[in-house]
Design a protein around this nucleic acid. Structure first.
Lengths: 242, 242
DNA sequence: TCCAAATGTCTATTAATCTAGACAACCGAA
DNA sequence: TTCGGTTGTCTAGATTAATAGACATTTGGA
């Protein structure tokens, strides 16, 4: 059921599980959460503890309590984000959202960190453009990403991206008509720091981290990116064929 | 830094971050953790709080404190688990571990849950074999999985698996010489219940959930599986080509 | 041998979390 | 209108988590 003395407060465990159940469509028949007393009994905790969990979900806009009636489910969705040989952010979400927005927070030319240099096959000390973006669907932040591009070929990509609002379009404007994904690594950690603010997460939420390398059609690495997804808003889908 | 009143205890946040840093090789030069007082200052907490985090890591066997000396790092590893068109558990880990073991906990023939029936393209009410396995590398549990197979073709797969200790080998024994992955979905949740025991996790740890469908070469779905990975022990690697 | 630096243990206090119970406020239906 | 079921609010107490400080113990090196 719920685990005590785990370092994770009961209300947070319960909030996580209810969010999951809602996204899973468990209460779709009624569109309402079970009564607080029922949930308290089900999880083996006090009603007040359930209320704390509910308050967290209400804060996220997932449920809305109505006195005298019950607690209504306002939103249940977890976007499907496909990862494939031709992963593109906006295209990937396709028609799952009407309004997809990529915002650039920052672009700077810096010496490439050693991990990035290695990934892109550059000598230590090479300059790279680092670009920070936040990606939203229907005004809801889905992920934030840090991208690195070799500065010699893509020194101006920051400015171009601000025009095009798309990495794919920026690449095209800079002469890269197409590109493919060489590798993607996925791990999961607790959200912290800046990411919490950018993704409007409640602290302690889980984020999926996807670290990827893209190459041009000649096989030359042109992009290293680390994308942090709010785990309760997406599921990553691995597409086997190109 | 660390987030207060997030429903996640400070010692757990710190333990999570230190585990990540260790796996990231941050302290490889000395092989020792920084002194407790240094960490306390770095995280902005009391020394005792750092000690609680350390105790959790020591419990997991990741560090070992030595009075008068410091805290030694005992183990730093996160296996790379590739996900591709031909994902195979044991092969995938390859030479990252000497001893890879698949244990079957249970096999039962049941009516397929609706999600499984849909995924495998079976009529509602069809019988399936459900099989629970735990997968370990070098005696350390890495993942536990629930597999479903259509009962008409694979009714005996439980017994065969116990002999072969491999899904791939069991398939071959039952006439499926090769199979490919149709789809993989990845999400992340907090560990709870049975999974904590099977994977020997500290409660509250993060698990990566990979839900996959495999088909035979004719394209007929033959396996639905949900694999739960201990997030601090693996990183999933998405391979773009077959 | 002595000292500096590190972990180990203890007490005490404060803050956060969880439990328990009572009752108010609100809604829909009988 | 009344009543059962629901959420909202309050008080009080128990348990867990975090802070603070003191001092013991162990180790390696000066």
């Amino acid at each position: 059921m719920v685990e005590r003395q785990s370092g994770v407060a009961l209300w947070r465990q319960i909030a996580d599980r209810m969010r999951l159940a809602i996204n899973n469509g468990d209460f779709d028949e009624t569109g309402m959460m079970p009564p607080e007393m029922t949930l308290a009994a089900r999880f083996g905790v006090n009603r007040h503890t359930v209320r704390s969990a509910m308050a967290a979900l209400a804060e996220e806009g997932i449920v809305r309590p109505i006195q005298g009636i019950g607690t209504r489910i306002e939103r249940r969705d977890r976007l499907r984000f496909p990862i494939s040989k031709r992963t593109r952010f906006s295209q990937g979400l396709g028609n799952q959202a009407r309004d997809i927005e990529n915002t650039m927070l920052e672009a700077a030319t810096e010496v490439a960190p050693s991990i990035v240099a290695e990934a892109l096959g550059l000598p230590i000390g090479t300059l790279c453009v680092r670009m920070e973006t936040v990606n939203s669907a229907d005004k809801r932040p889905i992920s934030c990403a840090t991208h690195y591009f070799p500065a010699d070929r893509f020194g101006k990509i920051g400015g171009v991206f601000e025009q095009t609002r798309s990495v794919t379009a920026a690449f095209q404007a800079l002469g890269v008509s197409d590109y493919v994904r060489r590798s993607t690594e996925i791990s999961a950690i607790h959200a912290e720091g800046e990411v919490i603010r950018h993704l409007k997460l409640s602290p302690g939420a889980i984020i999926l981290v996807a670290t990827a390398i893209n190459t041009d059609l000649a096989g030359t690495p042109i992009q290293f990116s680390r994308t942090r997804f709010a785990a309760d808003r997406v599921k990553l889908t691995v597409e086997p064929e190109a």
